[in-house]
Every structure is written in structure tokens, then in C-alpha cells.
Design a binder for these strands. Structure first.
Ligand SMILES: [Mn+2]
Ligand SMILES: [Mn+2]
Ligand SMILES: [Zn+2]
Ligand SMILES: [Zn+2]
Lengths: 152, 152
DNA sequence: TTGTTATTGAGAATCAATTACAATAAGAAA
DNA sequence: TTTCTTATTGTAATTGATTCTCAATAACAA
């Protein structure tokens, strides 16, 4: 029950959905990617890795939400413009730091922050279902040519 | 030096920009709004409050970034879809909770979380310039008709 | 093998945001 | 005040990500 395709099979069967080669390709490519990706990157990679098969962007857009619901994928709210995803299998929950210059994404997790969040929600009687916590700034490699614009 | 328009005057003069009635209207309306707003809401409010004046959405889109740079406005990364803003004057830095059902926005601030963030950045040698921290879930009023979809 | 219908690719539609451009007007200089 | 330069405006076109439409295709249950 660890194989993404197995999980997705179960999800399909229990939702009256069909297992198509297009969906398998999408899953295969996603789990070949290490790290975060957006729809366009995924589409380009599939075109490169499966040159004979023409898989439309529409199918990707239609499949991704199912993969999220099936627990295979997690949406990261890193860029406001377009959605970004990462595998939800075998990775603990974590937050992100993004370099505004080179785009590099780092990760962190903090049980203490989670505890504080829970306390805040309790105090405000807020039933949290998800959260996004992104730090924007300059990574080590990009701090050289950084003027005095730092606000910390 | 507390009046938004005064601040913006200085900003304009030091940037070779002109003070136009359109920009004054935008500033006036923004500081009449209590709370958060997006471009469309601002546009509609201006149309209602200045029926004789036709101010285009284009001018709003062009002015907002200046107000952010001038320190009058802060962008809130609450919705991934479209930008949301709030006054940056007289308000301490804070984070947001958003009800996914009614859209209500609550606020919180936590010095402890800020400290933890700073430590994380120090450890990762990351120079943070801003951060977004949003909790999504159900507010008190919307928890009645909430199924078992809570994941906390 | 057949029949139902979920899924596909292609392209049109949507929607916030950006851009192009000619007309206007802010504001410095005369 | 008048003149002049050019920043700013409104309009409309454009972009770019995402969603929708629809006829053709193909999964898969019978
Ligand atoms: Mn990640
Ligand atoms: Mn706020
Ligand atoms: Zn970097
Ligand atoms: Zn609510």
C-alpha cells in the first residue's frame, strides 16, 4: 500500500473513476520529481520523457485535484500567482522558505510553532484545517548582491 | 507626517512622480476602509463614493504598488487567487486566519513565532524580508454545519 | 463482445493583472 | 500667467494561468 499508483487505484475504484494511461504517466512523472513543481514544469517534463505520447495540459489540471484528494499530493501556497505542489508521501509536514532572487525553496518544520498555532485557534475558537507559512528572503548564495533593502 | 497623503507627497517628490486627484481619491478611499480589501472592492467603493468621477481600474492597479513601496499599504497573501491589501499605518505586524466558509478574516500576532522564525533563518543563513502566515479553517459561526472533514 | 459513460485533446472562455497608446494634465521653467 | 515637457490617465488589447465545452475515444462492467 505504499505505491502511489496502488493508492490511486483504490481511490479511483471507490470514486467511480477510471485508471487511464494518462493518469499513470502523470503519477509516474510526479514521483520522479524531487521537490516542488508547478503545472507547467510537470507538463514540460512529461513531454520530454514521453515524446511519443501527447498528454494535454487539460488532463494534468483535471488529475491533480484527484491526487491531492487521494493524499498523494500536497498543494504549497508558495507563489501567489500559480499553484505549486509536492509529494505528500513519506514527507512530514513542513513549511517553506523561498529565495526571492533565485527561487530556491528551503524547508523547515517547527513543532513549537504548531503548538502556538493550536493555542491561538483554541483561544479564537477557530477550527483550523490547513495553514500556509512561507518565509520570503535571500538564501545564502544570493546575499552577496543584496543592497540595503533588507527589512528583516 | 502621519497623514497618508503627506507621506505619499514626499514619496512622489522623491521619485519624480506627480500628485494627481486620482491618486488622492484612491488614498482617501483606502483609508476609509476598515480592514482588508482587494482591487475590485476598492474600485466598486470608489465608484459609489465618487459617482461623478470615473476612475479606471487601471489607475488603481498602477497606484497600489506605489502605496506599498511608500509604506502606506501592506499586501496580505491570504488568497492565492487575487491580491488583498490592508493599511500599513498604525497597525502592528500581524498574521491572519481566514474562514473558508464565510470568508471572515481574523488576526493574530505572536512574538514567540517571530522569535522562532528568526532562529530558523539564522540556522539556515536565510535573510528574511517578509513572511506570510495564514491559518485556514472555520470560524466560530461556521462550525455548526461542519462535517467530519476536519483534519486539524 | 457490447454498451455505458468517464476521460481525453483541442480549443474556447474566463478572470485578474499588465501593457500599449493617444489624449490629458501636473508642475517646472520662462 | 503662459509654455513646455513628460508623467499619468482611460480605453482597449493582451497576457498567463486555469477552467470549461464538446465531440471523439476508450475503460471496464455486463
Ligand atoms: Mn516542501
Ligand atoms: Mn490584517
Ligand atoms: Zn537564492
Ligand atoms: Zn465563517
Amino acid at each position: 500500500m505504499k505505491d502511489p499508483k496502488e493508492i490511486f487505484n483504490c481511490y479511483c475504484k471507490s470514486h467511480g473513476m477510471r485508471c487511464t494511461p494518462e493518469r499513470y504517466i502523470i503519477i509516474d512523472e510526479i514521483f520522479r520529481i524531487r521537490g516542488h513543481f508547478n503545472i507547467d514544469e510537470l507538463y514540460l517534463r512529461i513531454r520530454k520523457d514521453y515524446p511519443h505520447k501527447k498528454l494535454s495540459k487539460g488532463s494534468i489540471y483535471r488529475t491533480i485535484p484527484h491526487l491531492v484528494k487521494a493524499g498523494l499530493l500536497r498543494e504549497c501556497f508558495i507563489d501567489q500567482g500559480h499553484s505549486c505542489y509536492e509529494s505528500a508521501l513519506g514527507a512530514h509536514h513542513h513549511e517553506h522558505l523561498k529565495c526571492v532572487r533565485c527561487g530556491k525553496i528551503l524547508e523547515f518544520s517547527s513543532p513549537r510553532i504548531n503548538t502556538i498555532e493550536k493555542n491561538i485557534c483554541k483561544k479564537l475558537k477557530f477550527h483550523m484545517i490547513e495553514h500556509s507559512h512561507v518565509l520570503l528572503g535571500y538564501c545564502v548564495d544570493c546575499q552577496a548582491d543584496l543592497p540595503k533593502k533588507g527589512v528583516s
